[in-house]
Design a protein around this nucleic acid. Sequence first.
DNA 1: GTGAAAGCGCTAACAT
DNA 2: ATGTTAGCGCTTTCAC
Lengths: 332, 332
Amino acid sequence: MNQPKMTDVAELAGVSPTTVSRVINRRGYLSEKTINKVEEAMRKLNYRPNTVARQLQSQRTMTIGILVPTVANPFFGELTFKLERYFFNAGFKVLIGNAENDIKKERLYLQQLLARQVDGLVIATHNHQQQIPEYQNANLPIVSVDRYLRSTIPNVSSDNYAGGRLATEELIKRGATHIIHTDSVERFNKRDYLRQQAYQDVMKEYGLEPITYKIDFDSKPALMHQFFNRIFDEHPEADGFFTSNDMDAIQLLQVARQRGVAVPDDIQVIGYDGVPTTTRIVPELSTIVQPLDAMAKTAVSILQKEINGETVTGSHNLPVKLRVSSSLKDKL
Amino acid sequence: MNQPKMTDVAELAGVSPTTVSRVINRRGYLSEKTINKVEEAMRKLNYRPNTVARQLQSQRTMTIGILVPTVANPFFGELTFKLERYFFNAGFKVLIGNAENDIKKERLYLQQLLARQVDGLVIATHNHQQQIPEYQNANLPIVSVDRYLRSTIPNVSSDNYAGGRLATEELIKRGATHIIHTDSVERFNKRDYLRQQAYQDVMKEYGLEPITYKIDFDSKPALMHQFFNRIFDEHPEADGFFTSNDMDAIQLLQVARQRGVAVPDDIQVIGYDGVPTTTRIVPELSTIVQPLDAMAKTAVSILQKEINGETVTGSHNLPVKLRVSSSLKDKL
DNA sequence: GTGAAAGCGCTAACAT
DNA sequence: ATGTTAGCGCTTTCAC
């Protein structure tokens, strides 16, 4: 049996399709009697208006595309969750694409989604945007999160510079003097650049020597352990670490434990991200907390404005907080 | 400027819309010359066929709806990630809904998605299905994951009974005799029931006394800590724990550390789920690993069959594995 | 090989 | 207060 359509309802109720449409959308004048007849017919047939037909007619899909590296990563899982929540509250559904650090896949998604299947796009992937021409002539509302795309596309991020400063200053205030910063190698990413810049600025202000190590964002655990072991070997004097994300900080804590390096007595550690799921699993982790909820809320509201025809641009940097836990000493 | 449509391309190329459609879909006889003309016109206009119009015409959206409690949870984040990957490879896009343990939200999603916006549905939520009538007369291909909906809807799960047996037997083989099982209170969930059943069966087979504690699935950390502290107080003789998920096992490990209870010397611990992200953060955790990749692959393939008109029913229980780590002693 | 016309299911404009 | 007509952008007959 086929799904009933409007004409079926109309026929059963003895009215025209237009009237059925009016009842569904509560538009125009309707008599009580007609409304009842139509609603009963709809109930009898278990009728649901065809979403796609309405989308074609209205020229809006009430759907948003979200592109992230992968929702399996707690940071992007949490971000996606919050975005979905606020979009849902605003009446939008959400199409999710995991770009998997795969430029081909990201481009395929873009090509498909730009073909009017969504009313707007949230981009939070980590691929090199230069290699994705679709962003340059995209004719659709876009907002990027934690990532810079192009000057005309608004961006929502945590205040990476402030975060970098905060982390470094806290380590210093708590007595660390040989502080090492670990960072991703993705140099096209302004985000990492700003955190590193802040770290270096603060170190210089205090007359300390900045040391930055670069590592691939998605390295396997074994490689990460090797990486941190090398740092310990090369810098036995290190007494503070600022890592560019919590996953790295956690692996650092693991290596420290293996080597018998005491936290926070021998080394103090601050990560970056502060996703609730993660800090719940590793409560001892001190970290710079990104305001994910506010970031999601802001991204949704910006995208809604764009969809309504307003022009929005520029960077929207939301304030970070420090989460203090036992990977830090008490302040001096 | 409006998005160009097929007639614009046709006009520019000096052909009919039908021909443009043929070129796009590579259908029927086309001369080289026409193909070139049309393709150039499309390029010039940066034309993309309107997805919604094609969906209406073809009566398929090539989109799947996925409902989970929340992608912020690593288990469902990983599941969603894998599902998206396999659906993408099969040509489908994915609409994601976080039901947030909110029956209203789950029903709203169902009502919207059942209105022909998706070709099929993957349900992995934790709400009580009795309260969601939409599942009873849903007229759309559905597969459920890690959850039972109704006899005519196929289900993909890990082999919960085997997992429960495996965990309990391993604890016994490694010398534990006072083994406590913690379980969610969601009694409508067959999954938990089977794990508990297996635990009890094994305990009885070995002449040991089964002790099960029930806890709300999503309890706050403070409550969880209180919960495990109570168990330690009430059962100082406990030397083994089988928890119904890894989050619980991790909190148990935290409480043990706080109380100075040594792992694995004083107590041994096995969790359930084994999501890579989690075990990467807590490498010492031993756990029953759900075959998430295979589960996703299976769910996708079942749903495809349903979409192609085949009838699929029944439970598809995929084999679990034990992940042995330092929360377990060596075998006796 | 290519085009004209009809229709996917809905709603907006224009009657009455 | 309700119905008729046209059209959203595409594809699918059926014709030539």
